[in-house]
């Protein structure tokens, strides 16, 4: 199989898989997730180069992957639809101290995750101290605390 087609196929497949897993898939990497990522990278390497270990194939693969990534980034800037479809959009999870459970459920985030982010980034103790909690596109949770009176 042509190495360029192989590179594009692997790129798209990995892209779709991580989109299916959702935003939170890479935001919280445990030790096991890290090992899993190493295994995935090893497996995809075999599929990318096959038994051809030439320098040419290496160059073709690097250029293909970087090229596809560049095309994707251009498409994201040109089309809001493509940007949201490929990366998602921020989602408010807590509004004025009230957890929005349906949104949390959909995003596979629970109150513990929100409180963890609140403690780590803002030193907050209770949910009621949060003005807004937003699940960002990269899977992280940003916390906006209530203004102190």
């Amino acid at each position: 199989m042509n190495p360029v087609l192989r590179g594009i196929a692997v790129y798209l497949f990995v892209y779709v898989i991580f989109r299916i897993l959702g935003k939170r898939s890479l935001a919280e990497i445990t030790t096991f997730d890290f090992v899993l990522l190493l295994i995935i990278s090893e497996t995809t390497t075999n599929a990318l180069v096959g038994e051809d270990f030439s320098l040419t194939v290496c160059f073709i693969m690097v250029c293909t992957l970087v090229g596809v990534d560049y095309i994707f980034s251009v498409l994201k800037t040109k089309s809001i639809w493509f940007q949201v479809a490929s990366e998602g959009a921020p989602l408010v999870l807590v509004d004025d101290g009230k957890p929005l459970l349906k949104r949390m459920q959909q995003s596979k985030v629970d109150e513990e995750d929100v409180m963890e982010a609140a403690r780590l980034t803002q030193g907050l103790r209770h949910m009621t101290e949060i003005k807004y909690a937003v699940l960002e596109r990269d899977g992280s949770i940003s916390i906006i605390p209530k203004e102190k009176k």
Partner: peptide, 28 residues
């Protein structure tokens, strides 16, 4: 699936697309 809310933040949630993404995830 998601309730619309009005927040004092400069973000665009694109709720319909997020719901579409949710369905895509389920199918995926």
């Amino acid at each position: 699936l998601l309730e619309e809310i009005h927040v004092d933040l400069d973000i665009q949630e694109h709720l319909k697309m997020q719901e579409g993404a949710r369905r895509f995830q389920q199918v995926g």
